[in-house]
Design a binder for these strands. Structure first.
Lengths: 204, 204, 204, 204
DNA sequence: TCATAAGCGAGACGGTACGTCCAGTCTTACG
DNA sequence: CGTAAGACTGGACGTACCGTCTCGCTTATGA
């Protein structure tokens, strides 16, 4: 006990955030999310407990639970902070654009921060709040994807029966499937073809 | 806590399985998997701890760990025991067959036992053994699905470029996507169309 | 976190008590009470938290709570273990005997272990179980004291109206009063006189 | 938690004391001590935390700590405020007077506010400031009691050897003993006799 | 036939993390 | 400067499971 205290004061002369009055301290939020990210990198997702995050961030557990009432909520926050806002750069054809998209997300999901997304999906299976957040996120991404498909459709790339949103979901599902079954090494190009070829006008 | 005590005294007046010598007691396995299933029904997936299963089954924890070395392994066993072996009955067209398949799995996944599958996916994200079991299961189901697609292809339903296995995976992905995002109320018929229409020969 | 583990394994190669089957391990009880005593000596009563005891004893908190369901219960156990069974040695007169008694308890209450008794009294004010244990203890000691008074009465030392038990309680109360008001440096001899003189036959 | 919210909305529609400039606001002190008393009545001594008092009084915690630097200090203040200043009314004989005294304090100690005194004794065992306050209080009451004994002695009720202050302490000790061992239902009359008979001149 | 090897129920054990509570310190914004 | 508000670190609380262990018992098998 005494040892630990000594260790702490001995090993790190951290600046020790304090309250900034009766309002949320952004530095604290920053420190906590940062700590979560560090732990992810160092220990992996299994090490990411509320306890560990609090300790690493030198934050009280109560503070964590105040702002992120569950592990799931924290996961979502960490993911939100880490994920770059991917914009679907138009590569000329839908297939190429989607291949680039697959390449991007697979690369990201392989990073320490990206792995959080798999965790979020996992957590969503038993935490309704996370499920809701995940669903929100899915819809948001769906819209972005559907837009790309829409543009492709406008260009006349797609067959008549194609519905942008339905196709967008099929595209997403293929990616998520690779994620949850640990096959992020799949070839993005090939995958794009496997998912989309049927819908392209060329292949009658 | 009180529940557990009641459960113990209520459900059994000490039938007390014992060892049947130096070999695995099938009654024990049965009791454990049965207990797991009961807990799933009564308390939901959150209540399914090794501890609780052992208590409910009146089994020693060591026995559990001997045969199912982790929660994940137990989950898989419970799922294996519960899932009926779905055979893809040919409905004439691929779309109809797949619609029936979607209807079947969505119905099953909504049952207490079926919910275990979502849990397995969740567990697979952090338990390599479960991931492996899941991957084995995926491949097995993929083969079964691909066969159906193959038959459809032989009938000339599908366009030229269609690859049975790739299409099968797309079909699966669509289902799993609905599962993990909690949309098992999706319309199977519609979904089958959304996934497959592009690949059918009719829609050039 | 990792640091702590390393520290623990590094600094002490303790024998690590294990379960000895489905029954209480006496070594564990010993280790826990011993740890409690050590903490008392090192950090004083304020440091005696369940947490600290568990840590020092290298015992799980659950183990502590299993056998001593509250801090109070642990305190009582520590006290029971530490207190010598004082036998009232007859010094010839009641006054002398009681003076010796006062000297003995005051000396004991000043030791680290003895200080626990004050804590028990404190805890008894808000923990019914401790209150009960304290009351049991009081009665037990009362009987022992009353016997001494009885013998004195039999010798004709006491005036007629004296009731052994009532007098015994007065004697105890005087001691406890000094304890809870932190005046254990009172002169035992003098105190014995102040409490008893009125009841002795000499002082008409 | 819910209770507190209800309390807040229930008891006050934001009367909201404010600073009255660079000096102590008596209304605040009043509100705080009042809140403490209310909590005592509603939740008992266990609910009396600085946090809860601040909430109920709609006072900042800083304000509490400014005027009462510890829980102990607050307890003492609450007790000081609640206890009536008992004046020992002369009942003719010392025994009768003391019986009345015992009856009075036992009755008081049984009230919600009176229970604080037991808490103060408890707190005094580990908080030096409270111990000091308690000791001050003890001495003050001792003087008052000794005066009564003195008057009795002057009337010739007591035997020669009796020392007013020593006897007063014995009288107090008997009362405190009943308090800390939860026997406030003791018969005051009887107790007075048990403590004092030996010292009265009648009983030679 | 009887030792021995395993299966089994039971549950204690050291641990980790949980989510809650409170202590005591601090800052802001208002008066 | 006093005050209400409440965020903050820190740490103990008591609980729930984890996975490992040992006990004492049972039964089948092979020496």
């Amino acid at each position: 006990m005494a040892d630990q205290v000594e260790d702490l004061t001995g090993s790190c002369a951290k600046p020790q955030r304090r309250s900034i009055g009766a309002k949320r301290n952004p530095a604290t939020e920053e420190a906590i999310l940062g700590a979560a990210q560090e732990i992810l990198r160092d220990k992996g997702v299994k090490g990411l407990s509320m306890e560990a995050v609090a300790k690493r961030a030198r934050a009280g557990k109560a503070t964590l639970y105040k702002w992120w009432p569950s592990r799931g909520a924290l996961l979502v926050a960490v993911y939100e902070r880490a994920k770059g806002e991917h914009v679907h750069e138009d590569k000329g054809t839908l297939i190429a654009t989607m291949a680039a998209f697959y390449r991007y997300v697979f690369d990201f999901w392989r990073t320490a921060e990206g792995q959080v997304f798999a965790l979020i999906i996992a957590e969503a299976q038993s935490d309704a709040d996370v499920a809701e957040a995940l669903e929100r996120y899915r819809k948001e991404r769906l819209v972005a994807l559907a837009e790309v498909v829409d543009r492709s459709q406008a260009r006349g790339e797609l067959i008549e029966g194609a519905q942008a949103e339905a196709l967008a979901e099929t595209i997403m599902a293929a990616a998520w499937m690779r994620l949850i079954t640990g096959r992020l090494d799949s070839d993005p190009e090939r995958l794009a073809h496997e998912v989309l070829d049927g819908w392209m006008v060329g292949n009658r």
